[in-house]
Simulated assay, not measured.
Amino acid sequence: MARLSPRWTTWTLQTIQHHGPMRLADINSALPWIGVHAMAQIVRRMQTSGLLDRPQFGVYDLTPLGCDTQSVYRALSAWHRTHLADDAASLAEAERVEDALGRLRGKGTIPLLHALAQYGPLPNGALRNEAALAAGSFHYRITQLQTDQLITRTSPFSGRGSEYTLTSAARGLTPVYAELAEFARKSHPATRPDQPGATAQQAVRASAAVRRSPAASAELFSHVSDPQPRVPAFVTALSHPSRIR
C-alpha cells in the first residue's frame, strides 16, 4: 500500500504502461493537471520505491515490479465497479483504482477490516484493541470507514449493544487482499547473501561478520592473519579519555 497509494501513482504507471518509455515532459503532457515540479517528485519517489527505472538519461519506464501492479489494479478496479458502481459509474479506470486505494490506505484500515472479517461484529472497545489505535485516531478511522461504505453500525437495540460489522463491499475485498499480498511478496523477495541476486555489499558484510565472530574457524579462510599486539589499557584510556570502561 505504501508504494501504490500515493496520489497520482496509478495515473503515472498507467500512462507509461500505455505509451511505453517516456520523458518527463511527455508524462507531463499526458497528465497536464499535474505540475512540472510535482511530477518530478512523483517519478523520483516511484524510482526510489522500485516502480520506475531510467533505461537511458531522462527516460522513464516501468520496472518488473511496476508491471506487476497491473494485476493489483485490475482487482481494485473490478471490486470498485462491482460494489461502488452506483457512486462512480462514469469514472475512468485509473480514477476507480485511486478511489479504491484511497478507501484502504488510511492508518488502521486494514487491521480493522481484518478484525471484523475474523471475529464478526465487534463493539467499540474490542475493535479498538484489535486495531491498536489511539482513541482519537480510532474514532476518526471508524467514521471514515462508514463514509467509505466499508463498515456499518448495528442497532443498539439488537440486544448486544452497538457493534460494527463489514458491509458487502468490504466482504468483497478478498481478491484484492490476495493480489496485494502477492505484490508485497514480490516487493520483498527473501534473499540470503549466498543466493544469486544478493549484492556484493551484502556478501562483504557477511564475510566481515564471520571474521569478527570469535567462533570463526581458521579453515574458513585462505590464510590466517597474524595476531595483533595487545594495547595496554592505560594507553587506550589516554587515547580516549572520555570513554567509560
Rank of each mutant, 00 (worst) to 15 (best):
A132Q: 02
S162M: 15
L76K: 14
L122Y: 11
S71G: 05
A132Y: 03
I110N: 01
T82G: 00
G58H: 12
R245P: 11
D26E: 15
R153D: 12
E182L: 07
E163Q: 15
I42V: 05
G172P: 15
L76N: 14
Q149E: 08
D86G: 12
A215C: 02
M46N: 06
H18A: 02
S71C: 06
L62R: 10
R103Q: 04
A2M: 05
A233L: 13
S155G: 02
T199M: 01
W33R: 10
P6A: 02
Y119H: 00
P189V: 13
T147H: 08
K186T: 04
E219K: 09
S222Q: 06
L52N: 02
C67W: 10
L166H: 10
A135F: 13
V176F: 15
A209F: 08
N28S: 14
L116Y: 04
R245K: 11
P32H: 03
R45P: 09
Y60R: 11
L51R: 06
S242Y: 14
L65N: 02
M46H: 00
G172T: 08
A85H: 14
C67G: 03
P227R: 03
R212E: 13
S90K: 01
D194M: 01
Q118V: 00
A209T: 03
R230T: 10
T236I: 05
R54F: 07
M1N: 04
A215N: 05
A169R: 08
F57K: 11
S5K: 12
P229W: 06
P229D: 03
A126C: 07
H18W: 11
D53C: 06
F183E: 10
Y73K: 09
A132P: 00
P21I: 01
R211Y: 11
L31R: 03
K107Y: 09
T69Y: 04
P121V: 04
E95I: 09
R128A: 04
L133F: 08
W8Q: 13
A135I: 08
A126V: 09
R105I: 03
A178E: 15
R74F: 12
H114R: 09
G120D: 00
D226Q: 03
D99K: 04
I16Y: 02
I27N: 14
S168E: 15
F57A: 04
T236V: 10
I110H: 08
I16W: 02
A206E: 02
L173K: 15
V224T: 05
